[in-house]
Amino acid sequence: MADKYPKYVTQTAMKGLIQKIDLPAPDEFSQDWEYEVSDAARVSEFLYAYENVELTTDEKFALMIIIISSFDDAILEGSAENNWSNLIRHHLLQDHRIHKHTILYWAMLDEEDMSNVYAVTPFMREIAHLFN
């Protein structure tokens, strides 16, 4: 598997996740659906789905983006649960081939000014450095 990592959320993955974990469908003005449906209150539910629902590679890729975006929101809100980071780290490391681009996106390795990064960026940098 050379560099055949998923890079984009596909329509098929979107439809599958809408059906499998009851996510809202995009409307006619939707852009970046995976960020629109993120929800800090559903991180545990999303993690449960990642672990227990039969998902394709593209669905896992899309769901992990939703999980990380939701986790980022939870960090900002101060509602992140302690066990989430361990579960997310485990899945990112276990499925790193699927999530390579997602890890690098959120890690923002080229940004030196930590005031210009996501709340989840320090956590994602720890994971990204495991592969360097």
Rank of each mutant, 00 (worst) to 15 (best):
F29Y: 15
D3W: 09
G78W: 15
W33L: 04
I21F: 01
L130M: 12
N132H: 04
E59A: 05
A74N: 07
H96R: 13
K100I: 15
K100P: 10
N132Y: 08
G78N: 13
E36H: 12
F123H: 07
A49D: 02
R125M: 12
A107N: 04
N132L: 11
V53N: 03
A128L: 09
A49Q: 03
T12M: 00
A2T: 11
E59S: 05
M64K: 04
L93Q: 00
K7G: 08
V43M: 10
R97L: 10
A74M: 10
R97P: 06
A49C: 05
N132P: 05
R42D: 12
N83D: 13
A40G: 08
G16K: 00
P26C: 05
D72M: 03
K15C: 00
P26W: 06
L109N: 12
H96K: 13
E36C: 14
E54F: 10
N132T: 15
K15E: 01
K20C: 02
Y48P: 05
P24Q: 14
A25Y: 06
V9K: 00
N116W: 00
A41C: 06
R89W: 15
T57N: 07
D110E: 10
T12D: 00
D113V: 00
I75F: 02
A40M: 03
M1T: 11
L92H: 10
M1H: 09
R97F: 13
V43D: 09
K100V: 13
F131I: 13
S115Y: 04
F61S: 02
D113Y: 02
F46L: 10
E51V: 05
W106Q: 08
R42G: 12
I68F: 13
D110S: 09
H96D: 05
A25L: 02
E112Q: 07
V9P: 04
S69N: 12
E36M: 13
G16Q: 03
K4P: 02
N132I: 11
E77F: 07
D22K: 01
P24N: 10
T10E: 09
I88E: 11
I68L: 15
E28N: 09
T102P: 01
M124I: 11
A40Q: 08
L109W: 09
M108E: 08
W106R: 08
D73V: 06
S69R: 11
T12I: 03
Q19F: 14
H96F: 12
M14F: 11
F71Y: 14
D22E: 15
E34Y: 15
D32K: 01
S115H: 04
V53F: 02
E45V: 13
A49H: 06
H91D: 14
Q11P: 06
R89S: 15
D22T: 12
R89N: 12
I21E: 01
L47M: 05
D27P: 01
S70Q: 08
E77C: 08
S30R: 01
K20Q: 13
M124K: 07
G16H: 04
E59Q: 07
Q11N: 05
I88D: 13
F131E: 14
Y105W: 15
I67S: 06
E45D: 14
